[in-house]
Amino acid sequence: MRLLSDSIGRKAVVAVTGLFMVLFVVVHLLGNSTIFAGPDGINAYAEKLHGLGPFVWAFRAFMGVMLCLHVIFAILLTLENRAANPEKYAVKKMLKTTFAGETMIWTGLLLLAFIVYHLLQFTVRVTPDIVLGNDAKNRVDVFTMVFTSFRITPIVLVYVAAMITLFLHLSHGIQSIFQTIGLNNDKTMPQFGALGKVLSALFLVGYSAIPVLILAGILAK
């Protein structure tokens, strides 16, 4: 029994790291939604978060490890799967799988690219659109930074596209977690399926709302 070289062990690694990332996506959405409370909301939230010091770095390191394991093992499994099915059918009709299920590796790689861009933009703050400054209470003005960037249409389009990609990835991924870690049975199967679809739709609406409402001028300073 080997966790990192057995088929099911590797899949479990992808599932569990995926679960942690889904939990992060939930927390991140809750954190982001402080922007709806205006500059005071998100700037205070950001200051509190940065005030945690070493915990922030421990958390970042943990999420980095989760992401790396998830990507590495998903790629390894995909390569093994391609090798196990080298001759394609001339005609193949899929009966049950979904577009989301069939494109997991591609939506995953797109999300990886998005995560790199998103971190360079709002965490490392090196993309050209970034406006740095402090607010009236001398806190880092996260609100103005985000607001300025999301007034730029191409950036908003990138974010919405990324959230559609996340929706696809998780609408297959969330139910897949429960199947792979073995918590599923015939009664829970439709429930986990519905949970996956509802959560991923919530993420799509919740995350996209911020750039879209800013661009539309509804969420203003």
Binding site: R10, K11, A83, K96, T97
Partner: peptide, 22 residues
């Protein structure tokens, strides 16, 4: 040389005995 499961459930749909992916 079998591959790994990616939870498409095509197997259950094609199974002549309807074996469940549970």
């Amino acid at each position: 040389g079998f591959g790994n499961c990616t939870n498409h459930y095509e197997c259950q749909a094609a199974c002549p005995k309807g074996i469940d992916v549970k």
